[in-house]
């Protein structure tokens, strides 16, 4: 039996572009788990794959769009949310998931993130946060912890990192959750919830980057990082995202925000009906 034939028997095979596997990600990289959980969520929900669009940006996780067998767009640096906004507004029947990295979504793409959240465009944004720019060889980014070592912080990082869940909540996201690559079933459930909910949803996934970030910061192998997640993560639903800063001692995970708010599309539809009546 060829590898491809073996792979075809995987229960999630029908959601993947099989010929493109094995994927490019390193040993123990959390991106593979995010892909796995995302696809599992699609399976559980029985989502119509013809109506799903996955948009990704640049970086390791950016490749995710190319592994999922649906309409998918691997965009320019930082722009997946802006592009996804166009897709969603032009065809409201599509389900949109933006899956990208911390650098892509919050450095170069930070402006698009906050405005899409503010506008409450109906999309699910999943951020693989591995605390650095992995694909370009490990430079610091907007989530790199203070004092961490990267190729552009050779003497330690002196920039304060973003607390992504706080940022998302403040910008107006209707659903904000954080998990780690360890929380596979919870993450899957969270993705399912987000995909079923209307509005701008944000899920941060803390993800091991053993080869690039981990190596430079002596975090050991991916499995060590995963074990550390088990030790330091604390599930607190409804926790104030402002206080959920990630520290060496503790990562607060869970659903921080889950509210209802009319989406851009819904408000527009309402306006449309008013205009039609005039």
């Amino acid at each position: 039996m060829t590898v491809l034939q073996e792979f075809e028997k995987h229960p999630l095979a029908k959601y993947l572009r099989l010929e493109r596997f094995p994927h490019i990600w390193c040993e123990g990289c959390g991106d593979g788990i995010i892909l796995n959980c995302f696809v599992k969520a699609l399976d559980d929900l029985g989502i119509n794959m013809d109506k799903l669009v996955v948009v990704s940006g640049i970086g390791c996780i950016g490749r995710i769009a190319g592994y999922i067998k649906c309409d998918s767009f691997h965009t320019t640096h930082g722009r997946p949310i802006a592009l996804a906004t166009g897709i969603k507004l032009a065809n409201p029947k599509l389900t949109i998931a933006v899956i990208s990295g911390d650098g892509d979504l919050f450095a170069i793409g930070g402006n698009h993130f906050i405005h899409a959240a503010r506008r409450n465009v109906d999309m699910t944004v999943i951020c693989s946060n591995n605390f650095n720019y992995g694909m370009t060889g490990g430079q610091f980014g907007p989530t790199t912890p203070l004092d961490s070592y990267t190729t552009t912080t050779p003497y330690g990082n002196i920039e304060h990192p973003f607390n992504l869940v706080h940022l998302a909540a403040a910008a107006g996201a209707v659903y904000v959750a954080r998990w780690t690559a360890l929380h596979v079933k919870r993450l899957t459930e969270s993705i399912k919830k987000a995909l079923q909910k209307k509005g701008f949803k944000f899920i941060e996934v803390i993800s091991p980057c053993p080869e690039i970030y981990g190596r430079r910061n002596k975090l050991g192998k991916a499995i060590d990082t995963m074990k550390r997640y088990r030790q330091i993560c604390e599930i607190r639903h409804g926790y104030d995202p402002a206080k959920a800063e990630i520290t060496i001692e503790k990562i607060i995970v869970g659903e921080f925000i889950d509210i209802e708010k009319p989406t851009y599309g819904e408000l527009l539809q309402k306006q449309f009906l008013t205009i039609q009546k005039r």
Partner: peptide, 12 residues
């Protein structure tokens, strides 16, 4: 099956 980042393990 879920935690494998590489889709290498599954149940049949």
């Amino acid at each position: 099956e879920r935690i494998c980042p590489d889709f290498a393990v599954h149940l049949e």
